[in-house]
Amino acid sequence: MKPVSVKNLSITLGAAQILPDVSFDVAAGECFGLVGESGSGKSTVLRCASMLWSIWDGEVRIGDQSVRDMDVMERCRTLQMVFQDPYGSLHPRQSVRTVLSEPLAIHGLDNRQDRMKAALSDVGLPSEFLDRFPHQMSGGQRQRVAIARALILEPDVLFLDEPTSALDVSVQAEILNLLARLRQEKGFTYIMVSHDLAVVDHMCERFAVMQSGRIVEVLDRDDIVANRAKEPYARELIGASLAYEQVV
């Protein structure tokens, strides 16, 4: 289990400030949420912290190491990402076996067959799925494969970028249960981006509300129902979500 700390993360392109200044800390084994409207910069934070983008200033540390100082191999074995749309994030012409064996080959790991089977069984798929292609699977099964791909290098930290928003509610329930179980079993630290406050409340201990690249407020999950948000935008977002759900 490793903690994640983001300090003064910022992106400036010419005169435009894409991310003004983002800082937050995630404890080891915690699930931390990032919520906000589209365009508020929540996915951008994940893309910077995972070094998919490198044109940023500030510091992101996982455990006691800065992500900038890790080489690619080490970074991939420390953090992995699960993307929003399993229809887009799996190569249409690669079988599950190819998808899962590539990281193992790159990292020179042994017992590949066993590792692949273990990763599939972790996500609740039978090992026959190794020979399937994305078009032969449902959306939920594809997302399970995408999660298996993230698990196969046994990372410490998972970044989840809207992992269920392309899925139906019934399938979303399966994937959320799976992610919760994996965190319990393997002690992952999660950073989860979502626009759905109900999902964040279900999964995360704490979450940050973002608006135009800034963290407006960091809240505890219980602050939602207890109505303890102070910032106007956080209150608006929570109010709209509650009204939408008609819990009140």
Binding site: N177, R181, A198, V225, S241, V247
Partner: peptide, 13 residues
């Protein structure tokens, strides 16, 4: 199957 704000956070049916 719908998660709810203020729900019990147990596994979803």
């Amino acid at each position: 199957a719908q998660p709810r704000i203020g729900g019990d956070r147990g596994p979803l049916p």
